[in-house]
Simulated assay, not measured.
Amino acid sequence: MTTVLVEDGFEVGMPAQSRRGEVFTIHATRDDRSLTTHRIIPDIAVAQARQLTDAGWRVHISGLGGREFKPSEFYQLLDHKRIG
């Protein structure tokens, strides 16, 4: 079981393996603060990253072999079979 800490309403903890074998990490910074959150479902990672962006954080998501996705590229992570 993974230990999860909560900071500013966002879970921060050790990553778990997804069914696809991929973990998506959300990196967010604002002023002198930073948050790192791990998600195994890319659609959830994108939703949380967009919330952080809307709240004024600078955000990117890493995953898919270490590739970094900036906000304008988040759509590339979405599973269009589940999200219309």
Rank of each mutant, 00 (worst) to 15 (best):
E68R: 15
I83T: 15
W57E: 07
G9R: 07
R58N: 14
V59Y: 03
R39Q: 12
I41Y: 09
E7D: 12
R39D: 02
L64V: 13
D31H: 12
A49F: 01
R67K: 14
F24H: 02
H80W: 15
Q51I: 03
G9W: 06
L77A: 03
L5E: 07
P42L: 04
L52Q: 04
P15H: 07
Y75W: 15
T25L: 05
P42Y: 00
Q48I: 05
T29H: 06
S72D: 11
A28T: 05
R82K: 15
D32Q: 14
H80A: 09
G66I: 02
A49H: 00
S62E: 07
Q51R: 12
V23P: 03
R33P: 01
R20V: 05
E68F: 13
V12N: 09
E7W: 12
Q51N: 13
G84L: 15
M14K: 13
M1K: 08
V6W: 14
I61M: 00
D54Y: 05
P15C: 14
S62P: 03
T29M: 05
G56T: 12
I83K: 12
D54C: 03
R50F: 01
F74C: 07
I26N: 00
R82N: 13
M14G: 09
R67D: 04
Q51Y: 05
R58C: 10
P42E: 06
L77I: 03
V12F: 01
R39W: 04
S18E: 02
R50A: 03
L35G: 06
G63Q: 11
E73I: 01
G65R: 14
